[in-house]
Amino acid sequence: MFESGFKNVNINLTSANSRRTFSCGDIVTGTLSFDLTKETKITSITMALSGNVDVHWSSGSGGKKRHRRHFSAKINLFLLKSGLLLENSLGGGPTKLPPGTHVYPFTCHIPHGDFPSTFHGVHGKIQYLLTVSIDRPWHFAKSFETELNFLERINNKPELWAPLSGSNSMYVCCLCWASGPVELTATLERKAFMRGEIVKVICEINNASSRTVTPKARLKERQTYYTHGRHNRNSGTRNLVTQNGEAIKANSSDVHKELLLTIPTNTHLTISNCPILEVDYMIEVVVDVRGSSEVIVRCPIIIYDYNIYNQIPQQP
């Protein structure tokens, strides 16, 4: 067994920030450490840093496998390899390591590129892995891995920080006659928000109908998975948080309401730069008309990370 003679195998990463996150262009440093209880021959110790996307889902009816179709796709974003300990080319054989603690420092550079953030979803994942493989004579190589929390650097586009607004209206029918319209204008202070941030939704409502209406706002997440070429897809939407406002009486005009939505701290980041996996968000502002349909204004937003935003130069 590989474990014979080996104890306490650890990969320890160091990060430039307290949250232990990484982004493109960052230098990853750390150590591989392990204890040996006896003299051991090592052929090589190699390290690989990789970024990978993997999606998979199935569809169809019935419990039997032949009634279901399976879909999957994979992408390798990058793969970097290096050696921490290589076979002694001069001596022509493996390296003999004595009993005790052995520590091997390593340094690698995450390449520059438009890479999506780390993600673990229902039907897929985006992973950045540092894998160390230890190879011994007459043994299968044993691999140990640790995952990097990778965050995409967002582009500092002016439209992300500009106010976002939309309007909609609906006439309410009551038996054989129609009352006045219900009009909604919803405004957000900007399009980009951080996890844990409170979003202020400003609602301007004209209720010329004969019914009571109630404003509400909800944050919705959509995860979409694709096969290569996007010939097949699987998409699902869920409500993350909802905030209800106070009811507005019939025949009320120029009503100003503010609804506060807190983005959950465990929300995924927006992913829009991956060909087989997307995560997007929308704040749906609704005026619920008693006994009738809803008036809806949809505002697409993005969710980003605080540390990454701080590294982006601000517009003058």
Rank of each mutant, 00 (worst) to 15 (best):
R66H: 11
L84I: 03
E87K: 10
V55R: 07
G91A: 13
K81E: 14
E87D: 09
S61P: 05
G63T: 15
S61L: 14
G83F: 02
N76H: 02
K81Y: 07
K74D: 11
H67P: 02
N52M: 00
I75Y: 02
N52Q: 10
G62I: 12
K81F: 11
S89C: 10
L79V: 00
G63Q: 10
V55Y: 06
N88T: 11
D54C: 02
G63I: 14
L86N: 12
K65V: 04
S61V: 14
S82P: 00
S58Q: 15
K64L: 07
N52H: 11
R66K: 15
L85C: 08
L84R: 15
N88C: 13
S72W: 12
I75E: 09
L80Q: 00
D54T: 10
G83P: 02
K65A: 07
G63K: 11
G83Q: 09
R68P: 04
L85Q: 12
A73N: 05
S58G: 15
V53D: 05
L80T: 02
G92K: 06
L84T: 09
L84G: 15
L85K: 12
K64T: 13
L86A: 08
S58A: 13
G91V: 05
H70G: 00
S72M: 10
R66D: 11
F71L: 08
H67C: 07
N88P: 01
N52I: 03
F71I: 05
K74L: 06
R68L: 00
S58F: 15
K81H: 07
H70S: 10
F71G: 07
G83H: 03
R69P: 00
S59I: 03
A73G: 01
S61T: 15
H56L: 10
H56M: 12
S72L: 08
R69T: 03
L84Y: 10
I75P: 04
K65S: 09
L84V: 06
A73D: 03
S59M: 01
R69Y: 00
V53P: 02
D54M: 03
E87M: 15
S59C: 06
N76M: 01
H70C: 00
H67D: 15
F78P: 06
L90A: 14
K81G: 04
S72C: 11
H67G: 11
L80V: 05
S89T: 14
K81S: 12
S82I: 00
H56T: 02
S59G: 09
G62S: 09
R68E: 04
F78D: 01
I75Q: 06
H56Q: 14
G91P: 02
N76V: 01
F78H: 01
G83S: 14
H67R: 08
L84M: 14
N52G: 03
G60K: 03
A73V: 08
F71D: 04
V55C: 15
K81M: 13
G60P: 01
K81P: 05
L90Q: 15
R66A: 08
F71N: 02
N76L: 05
D54I: 07
H70F: 13
K74G: 06
V53C: 08
S82R: 01
G60H: 03
V55D: 06
S59R: 08
V53N: 07
N52K: 10
L77C: 03
E87F: 05
L86V: 11
K74A: 04
L77W: 06
